[in-house]
Design a protein around this nucleic acid. Sequence first.
RNA 1: GGGAGUACGCCGGAGCUGGAGAGCCGGGCCAGACUGUAAAUCUGGUGCUUUUAGCUGAAUAGGUUCGAUUCCUAUUACUCCCA
Length: 347
Amino acid sequence: MPVGTSATVKAVHQHELEHDIAAQIILGNTYHLYLRPGLEVLQSAGGLHKFNGWRHPILTDSGGYQVYSLGHRRKIKEEGVIFQSHIDGSKHTFTPENVMDIQRIIGADIIMAFDECTPYPCEFKYAKKSMEMTHRWLGRCVERFDSTEPVHGYPQAFFPIVQGSTFPELRKISAETIASFGREGNAIGGLSVGEPAPEMYEMCGLVTEILPKDKPRYLMGVGTPENILECIALGIDMFDCVLPTRNARHGVLYTAEGILNIKNACWKTDFSPIDPASPLETSRNHSRAYLRHLFVNGEILGMQLASLQNLGFFLWLVGEARKRIQDGSFAVWKNEMVKKVSFRLAG
RNA sequence: GGGAGUACGCCGGAGCUGGAGAGCCGGGCCAGACUGUAAAUCUGGUGCUUUUAGCUGAAUAGGUUCGAUUCCUAUUACUCCCA
């Protein structure tokens, strides 16, 4: 699975002139890229379909995260959520049922449950109430999903989502509930919303112990290269995150040697490659000085090259992780890599 | 050649006509943030120092005044008008 479906789909749209490269990133490594060895179940569960001429897997989110991130323009009720558009003020209702229908129509290979992602920090009482509603919504999602057919002629998978904020007691209940549905894969939500990393790891480790190990465990919204490595160590098989593309647009590049902000003055006359170790020609054949120039002058190509760099790096990183898991050297490699990838580079 | 006006910090703008602000707005520049994407976005800094404060400073040089970015004189530069 790519780093973030939304991120990678956006990458294709943003880089029309770079189609070959974007396609290589997305197609060359995808689908079970994040899956641990032996977890290829999704290949049969989801299948692949044609997308603009390439076979391109899609994962759609339900809008549960927007219940959180657009909290100021929505109302949560048992029936569902009412959103107000930031464009024209029009109101839109999202229910577990219509969200299943919409994802069916979009044609996603993996469809996510409609949930509420609780904010951080969160009162225990609210987190419990919210989790219980998410579980009830899950029942409605499954009922709708299982009573409808794919509309595009290929099968679609459904993943429920664990909630429970940062309370071990709630996480445990939620993980057990989610596992009991026996779906194609399981997701962990409600993390990477501002809590300290150790708390995220604690919840993650607790939940991965409960979710079935022979099915993909998908951690939603994570994260930095360091977070990803640590969470793979805890048993996570899949991730998605806006970070590689959003940070790329804001000038932050990830490489195997560390993190750098290409807008910094120190790269002004650095004519060495953006990332000599990148799998991408665009990162090996353009200089840091040139990329900085593009950013400084507001050229959209700068954001495109930076997005490619970060996606290329994230995909390389998880590809390496997969290899290391297979040959048994992951633990040692991970500890070395965590240090490297979180190092701040300066010219 | 004559007349009128203007001059502050990297740049542009507003404002100030005796009780100053290293102040305001925009830009540039220098940094930082961003984690299931509303946001090519947001935040901070940008004279010097030993930085909860102090110092220097308003084209340049003088002068008036208890006190001057403000008033006066000269000089310099620029803008406009007349010839």
